[in-house]
Computed example of a mutant assay.
Amino acid sequence: MIGQVENITRFGLFVKISTDKLDESTEKLADKAVSKNRGLLRWSQIPKNVPKVQIGDLIGVEISNIHEDGKVDLNYQEKIFKNVYAEFLETSHQRLTELEQKNRELN
């Protein structure tokens, strides 16, 4: 899944995650989470070769553990977003182009 960095602390990155598309095992874990949309990605889970991350950046993560108190631990996943979302980006671009054309025709 993809998460957006919300905060950077000395412990790691607090990442906002989407629970829309979870597999069954992760969904069972997420059911007991108090805060299903935020997790902690510890510095030790981030490979050294990953470029510096800033607030607002999108990164690949997976839920590794959900504690009894609802805290969510995340693992880093290597994602090349352009490869993963190339079709989505192309479709979105085509749709935006069509909408811009229709807007010009209406004005």
Rank of each mutant, 00 (worst) to 15 (best):
D20T: 15
D20R: 10
D20M: 09
D20E: 14
L22T: 13
L22W: 07
L22C: 13
L22V: 08
L22Y: 03
L22P: 08
D23I: 11
E24C: 06
E24H: 12
E24I: 12
E24V: 13
E24F: 09
E24Q: 12
S25I: 10
S25T: 15
T26V: 15
K28I: 15
K28V: 14
K28C: 08
L29V: 11
A30V: 15
A30W: 06
D31I: 13
D31K: 14
K32G: 10
K32Q: 11
K32I: 11
K32T: 10
A33H: 03
A33M: 04
A33E: 05
A33G: 06
A33F: 04
V34C: 04
V34L: 13
S35V: 15
S35M: 11
S35A: 13
S35K: 14
K36S: 08
K36P: 03
N37E: 11
N37R: 12
N37K: 12
R38P: 01
R38I: 15
R38E: 08
R38L: 14
G39A: 03
G39F: 03
G39E: 00
L40H: 05
L40D: 00
L41Q: 06
L41C: 03
R42P: 10
R42C: 06
W43F: 06
W43Y: 02
W43D: 02
W43R: 00
W43A: 02
S44I: 12
Q45K: 14
Q45N: 09
Q45M: 12
Q45Y: 02
Q45R: 13
Q45V: 05
I46D: 06
I46M: 04
P47E: 03
P47G: 05
P47R: 08
P47N: 03
K48V: 15
K48H: 09
N49G: 03
N49L: 08
N49S: 11
N49I: 12
N49P: 06
P51A: 09
P51Q: 07
P51T: 04
P51Y: 05
P51R: 11
P51M: 05
K52H: 08
K52G: 04
K52V: 09
V53N: 00
V53E: 00
V53Y: 01
V53L: 14
Q54Y: 02
Q54K: 13
G56Y: 00
G56L: 09
G56E: 05
D57C: 02
D57E: 05
D57F: 02
D57Y: 04
L58T: 09
L58Y: 07
L58R: 11
I59V: 07
I59K: 00
G60K: 01
G60M: 00
G60W: 00
G60L: 00
V61W: 01
V61K: 01
E62Y: 00
E62L: 01
E62G: 02
E62I: 02
E62W: 01
I63D: 07
S64G: 07
S64R: 06
N65C: 08
N65Y: 13
N65F: 11
N65A: 12
I66Y: 01
I66R: 00
I66T: 04
I66C: 04
I66D: 02
H67E: 10
E68I: 12
E68T: 12
E68A: 14
E68Q: 13
D69Y: 06
D69H: 07
D69W: 07
D69S: 11
D69P: 09
D69T: 11
D69F: 05
G70V: 12
G70Y: 06
G70C: 10
G70E: 09
